[in-house]
Design a protein around this nucleic acid. Sequence first.
DNA 1: GCTATTATATATCAAAACGATATATCAAAT
DNA 2: ATTTGATATATCGTTTTGATATATAATAGC
Lengths: 182, 182
Amino acid sequence: MARERKIDMVILGLLSHEDLTGYDIKKRIDGAISFFWKGSFGNIYPALKGMENQGLITKNDTSVGGREKTTYHITESGSDALKDWLKEEQASNELKYETLLKLFFGGAESRGVSVHNIEVFEEQIQKDLKVLKKYSEALEKALDVEDHIYYSITASFGIETYEAYLKWCAKAKKMLKQRGGK
Amino acid sequence: MARERKIDMVILGLLSHEDLTGYDIKKRIDGAISFFWKGSFGNIYPALKGMENQGLITKNDTSVGGREKTTYHITESGSDALKDWLKEEQASNELKYETLLKLFFGGAESRGVSVHNIEVFEEQIQKDLKVLKKYSEALEKALDVEDHIYYSITASFGIETYEAYLKWCAKAKKMLKQRGGK
DNA sequence: GCTATTATATATCAAAACGATATATCAAAT
DNA sequence: ATTTGATATATCGTTTTGATATATAATAGC
């Protein structure tokens, strides 16, 4: 019980660097960490409310013209919660790959469908890899290397795995084509 | 709306090979496909009920002594639903890596904690890789190669990615150690 | 033979995440 | 001038997660 809401830690991690609005948080998640984590508005906004009630963050309402905006700031208590989580060694790592699922159960269908599914996946990865490599190169050029080491390491994780995916795509297609199609 | 329940397709995929109970289904998911998909009882049992109502599967109750058992069987309509899903080219592929998350936000903590987190991750992967390789070797020895090609391909995906993870672990640890610790 | 443990089997529940949608303002481009 | 896209917050139904409860059958150890 009293399960830990993972999104809380993501938000606290982001807020430990700078004050942000819910919308900003979504953008950050969609940016640098999107290849190993995701978040939605339906996830972020309730979490912000909950954490404000718990005193982990404080809010600051501003309005520019008719436009409202709520910026969140991490408290000392929130900072402690983040540190506690970082120290815990258990971590859940999981992937949900529908492409693999389709391939695994694809025996019921034609060989061509499986090859096509791999190609669609391959294209997506190639696109993602391109973006990630650009991001990684930009990081290396940045002056404050010490501060960016963790960003580099996570980006390198993405690059390594994406390259492994592409390697597998080539292999898988070859295997499927060699045996002729149904 | 009427969003597609992914677990339905997993269950239909498994039932397309053999009749199974809810418990069996959980075991199958925990087995060969666990490295790219997960399922829980709280997910499986309601899905079975729902699909039975939709006519995608039929149930068969038996009782051995005081023990009750419900075995499910795929219908033609269920088989069609599976085929339709296999043909759709869109597929959601996502990973949630708490280890990466901790590393990314680890700047707030000591360098040693980050290295330790990587080591914990590394050990888990080494363990999983061992299991997967054994499974893969067993597959290659199997006579009915044609039927097992899809199993081989998905297993090879796991091996490729796990090996990429290990490669990254070594690299990441080196990077963190080179720069000395806080 | 007795007992403890593990495997089989189904089920439910609160909390969390997902994904889609709604609403409205502001900035930029056509 | 208008349409498109970015900013900003919010909600809602469905699905998933993870934990827990319950009970029987089989196996292993003493």
